[in-house]
Amino acid sequence: MSARTLLPPDAAASPSHPRWGVRRAARLAFPEPSALAADPVHAARLRRYLADLLAPYGLRPDPIVGGQSYGEMAEALIGAVVPAGEQVDLLVLAHSVPDLAPGRATACRLGHVCPGGPLSFAVTDQGGTAASTALRLLAAYADSAGLRRALLLVVEQDRLPYDPGVPVALPAVSRGVALLFGDPLPGERPLRVDPAATARPGTGPWWELAGRVAAR
């Protein structure tokens, strides 16, 4: 794969298409543990990682049972939302609850498996509203870097393999949402989305949005 090169915002600015928005959406629930959860090599690595992560906080991991690999969730979502023959320029993965693979550069991997070999990265650790910031970034890169065919992936799992010692809200079920943004193809009416309107924790607002897109 060759490098993507970007100019800074002013130099690369292109006029925003007035109808850039959500062209397609998919939403999936993941009630079963991921395949990675059954991998004993991964489990041993995860136990060490978590034990060392938690020790400075006086915490210890629970026995690890199940859990979700965001890579597996995201690959299923990509397959559900990116039409055959289409390419993606930019992929942003957003979540709050950590991945079953806490040291993995999952978004980098997704850039490899997603059609178009998009620039991909992750936005996390924003108290449940990382996806709203991810959407702002998606729009900013679409306008200033010409990465207009953009995929937002919002994933959250229902499991945290430790008691963090502070209040924490976890989803009732592991879910993921994929929103494919772009300029309209003939016959399409992309849905404009205001990041401020989705700045609520979790996948809830994105799940509802995906439902609205599917119903159009």
Partner: peptide, 23 residues
Amino acid sequence: FSVGHHACASGLLAIDAAGRLLA
């Protein structure tokens, strides 16, 4: 928030992303 999954190249990503958000 955090940006990453570019491993130790994530610092350059953060500068680029910050500039685009501000612009």
